[in-house]
Design a protein around this nucleic acid. Structure first.
Length: 504
RNA sequence: GGCCGGUUCGUCUAUCGGUUAGGACAGCCCCCUUUCACGGGGCAAAGACGGGUUCGAUUCCCGUACCGGCUACCA
């Protein structure tokens, strides 16, 4: 019997899925695939995410774009559905009551206002063994009072954290971690509205769904103590998953966790794909829409927290699965570097085959109102231009002139050195090329150079003007390649057009 | 404040006690290219600090400093 490894992912979709979230899923995926287990994605509809329309679909679209298909998830059904927290409410209450019965939890009736007052009064107030005796809860009230409160007032269920115990566990990334219970407070498990807090939900769901490995961000490390205790109090200790707390992705400048705001501020995407918040109608751009290849995105994400121990930096998803190992996952957080991110994309565009780029590039041109009917031409253009494209939209600037005459011609770049001799040369060139029966790059270059020599002009001085005539500016691949691709008629017309502009 | 975690070039990182501390991004220079790139070559740039352990510490241990996370009826 093969042991099946399951990993769990519970994002908090306040809308959108940002770098850290996708990376958590990616590492889940790599680990699961590497060890031959199932890759399970579970999405909780928490207080924050419950009413965000489209969040679920968005997340699965993101995973699909990245190539991270789940074996089991809300959209794929699976043996442990439903996954939505609101649809599993009874479970949480049942287990909270079990804890109550066994003396590991208690009812608390303190109102938010009372709690706030308490926090104001006591600087470092902690709802715990030392203070619960003076609070409004089932530990301090009489049975009659409790009964009365339960019937008529809102209440929560809190975990009863022991006074003096050490809880420890072995994290897959950090090794042994331990906490002293005197430092952890009596967290709320079941809220007044009957929904569980994250603490109760993770434990109950992981148990019920037979999760063997749970990955999450480092920010969860402190609350691991509560979760550990819960596994113990519920009597499930033997089934507790192995934990892996991933390092955080930090702001490129300054300090702290990378947030959506940082992307807006510094001008780079933080989400994998465009996300429009249905409440505010505000769109946050994604890596996909910025022109990143999914392969590059996955690649750069993987390297932001892991490496294979060699100097290698470019990996396909399949290669990552093959090379991945948990003990090479970093412990420390990494600042996100957008320049490096672009480098990955550039590398991926360069090494991508023309065929895999065609569709995307075609779509980009269509968005600009350019319909491409000649696929062979498109392929040639991509081949010629892809080395100088860092992001997909660069294909527009770098290749537009192949499909339409340049709108603006930077004649200023040639005017200063323009003279009658050059004018004569280009007029002759038009005539010569007009008669030419050959139209290959090498033929064009040869004829051009011969003509220049005959006119006692240096080729170099003529190349730039020719480029400006054909491209409109100082960029693009080899000029003769361009002439060859756009064809005789178009080439000659562009030369004549610029010649005319230069008259004035 | 308390608890937990982290600390190698500006940034991401390699090093499983002995290295001229390696690579990549960014920067600068050169070559290639009479465009812009690609490519090739080069320069500059790091072990937070203090104690141990050891023949020998970037590496192991302790302390300090700094950074981060958590400290909600948010996740």
């Amino acid at each position: 019997m093969t042991k099946k490894v399951r990993v769990r992912f519970a994002p908090s979709p306040t809308g959108g899925l940002h770098l850290g979230g996708v990376r958590t899923v990616l590492f889940n995926y790599l680990f699961a695939k590497k060890s031959g287990g199932d890759f399970i994605v579970r999405i909780e509809d928490t207080d924050q995410s419950r009413f965000v329309a489209g969040a679920e679909e968005y997340i699965f679209n993101t995973l699909k774009w990245c190539g991270l298909e789940a074996d089991e998830s809300p959209v794929h059904g699976g043996p442990y559905a439903p996954y939505r927290q609101s649809e599993r409410k009874e479970n949480y209450r049942r287990y909270a009551e079990q804890l109550l019965k066994d003396g590991y939890a208690y009812y608390a009736f303190d109102t938010p206002a009372e709690l706030e007052a308490k926090r104001k009064e006591v600087p470092n107030f902690q709802y715990s063994y030392s203070t619960r005796g003076e609070m409004n809860n089932s530990l301090t009230l009489t049975e009659d009072e409790i009964k009365e409160k339960l019937a008529g007032t809102p209440y929560v269920i809190r975990i009863k954290i022991p006074e003096d115990e050490t809880v420890s566990f072995t994290d897959m990334i950090r090794g042994d971690v331990s906490f002293h219970t005197s430092q952890v407070d009596d967290k709320v498990l079941l809220k007044a509205d009957g929904m569980p807090t994250y603490h109760l939900a993770v434990v109950v769901d992981d148990y019920l769904m037979k999760i063997s490995h749970a990955f999450r961000g480092e920010e969860w490390l402190p609350s691991a103590a509560v979760h550990l205790l819960l596994w113990k109090y519920l009597g499930w200790e033997a089934d507790m998953p192995q934990w892996a707390h991933l390092p955080l992705i930090l702001k490129p400048d300054g300090n702290g966790k990378l947030s959506k705001r940082d992307g807006d501020r510094l001008g780079f995407p933080v989400f994998a794909m465009d996300w429009t918040d249905p409440k505010t109608n505000e769109t946050t751009t994604g890596f996909k829409e910025h022109g990143f290849l999914p392969e590059a995105f996955v690649n750069l994400l993987a390297m932001l927290g892991w490496n294979d121990g060699t100097d290698r930096e470019i990996f396909t998803l399949a290669e990552l699965v093959e090379k991945f190992s948990m003990d090479r996952v970093h412990k420390g957080g990494a600042k996100f570097d957008y320049e490096k991110a672009k480098w990955y994309n550039h590398e991926w565009i360069k090494q991508s085959g023309v065929g895999s780029l065609e569709l995307g590039v075609k779509r980009l041109y269509e968005e600009k109102g350019i319909t491409i009917t000649d696929n062979a031409l498109l392929a040639k253009v991509i081949e010629l231009v892809k080395d100088r494209c860092v992001l997909l939209p660069d294909f527009i600037h770098q290749g537009l002139f192949f499909f339409q005459s340049p709108v603006t011609i930077e004649t200023d770049a040639i005017k200063p050195k323009w003279d009658e001799k050059k004018n004569m040369f280009f007029t002759e060139l038009v005539r010569a090329w007009q008669l030419s029966s050959l139209w290959e790059t090498s033929d064009l270059e040869k004829e051009f150079k011969e003509l220049a020599a005959a006119n006692q002009l240096k080729t170099g001085e003529l190349m730039l003007p020719l480029r400006i005539m054909l491209v409109g500016g100082k960029f693009g691949p080899g000029v003769f390649d361009i002439a060859a691709v756009i064809g005789k008629e178009e080439t000659l017309q562009r030369i004549r057009h610029t010649l005319q502009l230069l008259q004035h």
